[in-house]
Design a protein around this nucleic acid. Structure first.
Lengths: 193, 193
DNA sequence: GTTTGCTATATAACACTGTTATATCTTAGA
DNA sequence: TCTAAGATATAACAGTGTTATATAGCAAAC
């Protein structure tokens, strides 16, 4: 196996196990069975590792939202796409926290990482936007995508921080979906005037 | 001036200037004009400093939402309360990022800090909940408060991370308020059935 | 076949972090 | 005045990301 992939696998494993806290350069290199220097020759230091995980995270989000085959979406499909997003937020908390800057205060995503983020947001625009009437402008589509994003992200983020009181009977994902649905209905009512 | 307040002021200044990145124990003690040891005798180390700032942050949020004098709120008042929240998120980004775990991966709020958070959320429940019909249950009030919180927090959080592309012409606060208003209307329509 | 040069890897060090053990200084009470 | 307790200072420890230096391996050139 390539040294680069060995390091990446080790980092991904550690990140999954202990989140950002246990993700030190020395821990990664130890797990990968080599010296710390590889992280600086194969990646650009820890920044490069975080970049790789950041991209991995946004690709998860994008793929999870990619449920619409072609053309116009119905409401159920938009909600299913949001459900994919919510599931990623729940099941991949470490990645999700990283892509929303909750892991390392010093980390700044690279150009490539930002384009991965934009790619995920484009997917959301295409999904949420395709629910609007065909005459809708790109501005309107981006707007409703941003609204939906804020709602689902808001619930994911809150659920992560309320994890202290960890009440499993609370269904965050259902709450978020309900708010999204209400918003879609209201937006559709406005746009069809 | 008390040593304790000297340290707290120094920490608050540094936090305001450089966020969580420059907030080191040595930097705080240097700014306060004393040794590092004071942070461990007067506070419980860095955890104690972060706790103080965390509480400060949530008190800002609570006070900013405290716009309703007594009794039932109208929609404008709820929106004004949300506007207060949004302003804190915009003008006190460092504090806001801290209270949503985006500063130090290792920090865990203490019991006192959590009660400050609960106090702020209670304020939101009382504001958003009082907009509902009087017959509404506490469950319904907490639910709409959570919805509103997710929306405004979602927008604040997204605005912080889109700060890379920093387009000042985008009015995040207005977008958030519009979504909140749509949600309030929809929720009111449902609850008055 | 030897030498050169490039790459990958290793070791050790540097500057930083939070934390603490030890020592000094100050001050209030007996 | 002596004592005890608290506040402050210094220095060290273990950890972090990073890098300068040194070694090993291996492919290409002569």
């Amino acid at each position: 196996m390539d040294s680069r992939t060995k390091i990446l696998n080790a980092a991904s494993e550690l990140f999954l196990e202990g989140g950002g806290a246990g993700l030190s350069v020395r821990a990664i290199s130890k797990r990968a069975g080599m010296s710390t220097i590889g992280i600086y020759s194969h990646f650009q230091g820890k920044q490069g590792i975080l970049d790789a995980l950041y991209i991995e995270g946004f690709n998860m989000v994008r793929d999870a939202m990619d449920v619409i085959s072609e053309g116009k979406a119905n409401k159920a499909q938009v909600l299913e796409s949001c459900m994919g997003y919510l599931r990623v937020g729940e099941q991949n908390e470490a990645h999700y926290r990283l892509i929303f800057g909750e892991t390392d205060a010093g980390y700044e995503p690279s150009e490539e990482a930002i384009s991965a983020r934009n790619s995920a947001f484009s997917k959301l625009v295409s999904v949420a936007g395709s629910y609007l009437p065909e005459a809708s402008t790109i501005i309107e589509r981006r707007q409703i995508a941003l609204d939906v994003w804020a709602i689902v992200h808001g619930y994911v983020s809150i659920s992560h921080h309320a994890a202290l009181t960890h009440d499993p009977s609370i269904d965050w994902k259902a709450m978020a979906l309900r708010v999204v649905e209400m918003h879609l209905d209201a937006a559709m009512a406005l746009n069809s005037d």
